[in-house]
């Protein structure tokens, strides 16, 4: 019975995937939709393979920026959340700026950052970090603030110092909230990276999507979008894997 359920839950998305793309294919063929308007999925998949050598350097650039920005954002967000929740003064001084960063659409900062840092990787990674650390920070703060009082009392009754209390109790207590932030940050990182590439320079998948659209090469444009999706899926997979490895308990 269980085996059957597993098989079904594996097959269901495969079947729905095939169904959706077949419908798309059929709709394009029957209605003779022009390729520049909406290419057939088979054409897009062919382009993903045939034009791969052309895409590859851009895939690398985008993936590097997303991953680097994301990996820097995690410790920055966590450190800030730890400071903010441990010291009320730091909280009072910094929390308005963190709110600014979350609520300001980062796209509005891109021209300024371009002016200051140019089109290179540094500027892109900086933008990704600024946009994604705040959401980690916010979720980690929630986690730290929701640590049950009796767990603090337990550590006090043992005479644990603040660092041991943090490492052995606070951090694991907040782990699932932190992972919520990390998940969101991965989405923020990908979105921000593509937005920056739309605006700055001629490398990265974002710049290619713009370029191909301008030449009405919609098929290649779609191929790039699918590669962005794959990058997003890889990030999602990595985080799920890490979460399973780290959080093996139930509350």
């Amino acid at each position: 019975m269980k085996k059957k359920n597993k098989l079904i839950s594996f097959l269901a998305p495969v079947v729905s995937f095939l169904l959706i793309f077949s419908l798309w294919e059929i709709a394009c063929t029957v209605n003779e939709v022009p390729t520049w308007f909406l290419p057939k999925p088979t054409e897009i998949f062919r382009s993903m393979v045939v034009d791969f050598p052309e895409f590859w350097p851009h895939i690398l650039v985008t993936f590097e920026v997303v991953l680097m920005g994301f990996l820097i954002a995690i410790p920055v967000g966590l450190l800030l959340a730890s400071l903010v929740t441990s010291f009320p003064l730091v909280n009072a001084a910094l929390s308005p700026y963190i709110t600014f960063l979350v609520t300001t659409p980062l796209i509005s900062l891109i021209p300024l950052l371009m002016l200051m840092m140019g089109f290179g990787l540094n500027m892109r990674i900086t933008t990704v970090v600024i946009q994604s650390f705040a959401v980690i920070n916010m979720n980690a703060c929630t986690g730290f603030n929701n640590v049950p009082t009796i767990r603090r009392e337990l550590m006090q009754s043992m005479g644990a110092d603040p660092i041991k209390t943090y490492l052995k109790m606070t951090l694991p207590s907040a782990a699932s909230d932190i992972f919520t932030g990390v998940r969101l940050a991965a989405i923020f990182a990908t979105t921000t990276c593509i937005s920056v590439e739309y605006n700055a320079g001629n490398t990265g998948l974002g710049s290619q999507i713009i370029k191909y659209s301008q030449y009405l090469k919609t098929t290649q444009s779609f191929a790039c979008i699918f590669y962005v999706t794959i990058i997003g899926l890889i990030m999602y997979g990595l985080i799920s894997f890490a979460q399973k490895k780290i959080i093996s308990w139930k509350e």
Partner: peptide, 11 residues
């Protein structure tokens, strides 16, 4: 110290 609710760390 023994707490009212066992207060074990779930991890």
């Amino acid at each position: 110290f023994v707490f009212q609710s066992n207060n074990l760390l779930p991890w």
